[in-house]
Amino acid sequence: MIINHPILGPRDSQEFTYLGDATLIDRPDWQAEDAADQFHDYLYLRDNPAGEHRELWFHEQGDRSWLVVTRNTVTHEILTVELARDVARTRGRSK
């Protein structure tokens, strides 16, 4: 596969390490009332769609950016590639 890195352009997927579902960005608030349940869901419950999937890839053999790749798991078509840091910020993550 070829991943169109937002900074570096098209790169072979061999340069990347795959992590999985991009919902790992949405780490729960440790002080929430039901934090234990939220962490359980965060860690163990994943959707496994046949189709579009937002997933995390690490450009380990490259610039070490974490990317959010939106990929169709059936066709392997890659729809968008974003810097995970930008995605994290839009999802309200900060410090």
Binding site: L19, L24, I25, R27, L56, F58, R64, S65, W66, L83, A84, R85, V87, A88, R89, R93, S94, K95
Partner: peptide, 11 residues
């Protein structure tokens, strides 16, 4: 790096 970029992006 995951924590830095994905969890605490403004640190």
């Amino acid at each position: 790096e995951f924590a830095r970029q994905c969890l605490f992006p403004d640190m």
